[in-house]
Design a protein around this nucleic acid. Structure first.
Length: 338
DNA sequence: GCGACAG
DNA sequence: ATCTTGTCGC
């Protein structure tokens, strides 16, 4: 039973999740509530958070959740908490929060306990805010559960409410000529759900920014832009880099049973053991502001093939349904209502 | 059966 | 999301 979070939940579960989203959605505040948000240069803003979850290939349970806090406007990491977690829900488009948000809330609580002074004034979330099937993406979810301002930053357009990544959309993207350029994402209802943002002068593929909680779309977009040294906003980029680094260093290439890995021809299988410090040595757990050690974080060598994959293809699975069809391995799906 | 599909 | 190697550009 190493796949607790592998198969799609039954409709009954999805209905409960929809109800939860509808209930929490009523608490979303889609306007500025902080003084720094009104300031042209964001004076007063000093700490920006970023969260992300990386996964262990071939393992539907283990993942690493990270929360980082960066100084603003320097964008230097002043706090990091990366933790291995056990996933309890699978990824289902439209319900990303039920898979990741419990761990993100935990990270925020740990920060509150350990270093309350480093609590971020806003968190950039990997995923959407109100640009969502039911107007309540993971950025809204995290925002409402923590009451912290949150911004949804997606790397791909979620095609909902009439929004399509079609020829017209692509034409608009071409018109984004410089970093900071944007165009609104208007749903069928006529509502502005978010903005496509060219985050950097040298980046062609836009980011899709939407309101998570306690911030206006305009400010969300402007702040996201100010956080970009590269295409991905630094807070999210650092959380991403550090969470996968954590996995790489603790599990290396052996994510799952070494026996069922695909045989890579006859190449040498590196012994691959964790260098200094055993698994018991977190290597960076509650590390105070100092952040000693390697800070290779920001380097101008962002390796990205000069060409894209004309179509973000997703390997359509191997077509194998290797395991049984016992879905809920155990109860406890929905979190306690209130 | 076919198209979609945030992470 | 994950894996993967080289390659092109500043």
């Amino acid at each position: 039973m190493a796949h607790a979070a592998a198969e799609r939940p039954p409709e009954e579960t999805l209905s409960l999740w929809k109800g939860e989203q509808a209930r929490l959605k009523a608490r979303v505040v889609d306007r500025d509530t902080e003084a720094w948000q009104r300031d042209p240069s964001f004076s007063g803003l000093q700490k920006v958070g970023g969260v992300d979850v990386s996964f262990v290939k071939g393992d539907s349970v283990r993942a690493c959740a990270s929360l980082v806090v960066l100084s603003y406007p320097e964008l230097k990491v002043v706090y990091e908490d990366s933790r291995m977690v056990g996933l309890k829900a699978p990824y289902v488009s439209g319900f990303l929060a039920f898979r990741e948000v419990p761990f993100l809330v935990e990270l925020v609580q740990r920060l509150q306990e350990k270093e309350p002074d480093l609590m971020p004034q806003v968190i950039l979330v990997d995923g959407n805010g109100v640009l969502h099937q039911r107007g309540f993406g993971v950025a809204c979810h995290l925002g409402v559960l923590t009451e912290l301002p949150c911004i949804g930053v997606a790397k791909k357009l979620l095609q909902v409410d009439g929004l399509e990544n079609n020829a017209l959309h692509k034409e608009k993207i071409v018109l984004l000529q410089a970093g900071g350029d944007t165009f609104p994402l208007i749903g069928s209802s006529g509502t502005v759900l978010g903005m496509a943002l060219r985050s950097h002068d040298h980046s062609t593929k836009p980011l899709y920014v939407s309101v998570g909680h306690r911030i206006s779309l305009e400010v969300a977009v402007r702040l996201t832009h100010h956080c970009c040294r590269f295409r991905i906003p630094e807070p999210i980029r650092q959380a991403d880099i550090r969470s996968r680094e954590y996995i790489r260093r603790t599990l290396g290439q052996l994510g799952v049973a070494p026996a069922q890995r695909k045989d890579r021809s006859q190449k040498e299988q590196r012994p691959n053991a964790c260098p200094q410090g055993g698994p018991g040595a977190p290597a960076d757990q509650g590390r105070p502001p100092e952040c000693h050690g390697r800070d290779s974080s920001s380097d101008p060598k962002a390796p990205k093939p000069g060409f894209q994959k004309q179509k973000d293809q997703q390997l359509e699975g191997t077509g194998h349904q290797e395991d049984s069809d016992l879905w809920p391995p155990s109860p406890a799906w929905v979190q306690s209502p209130p």
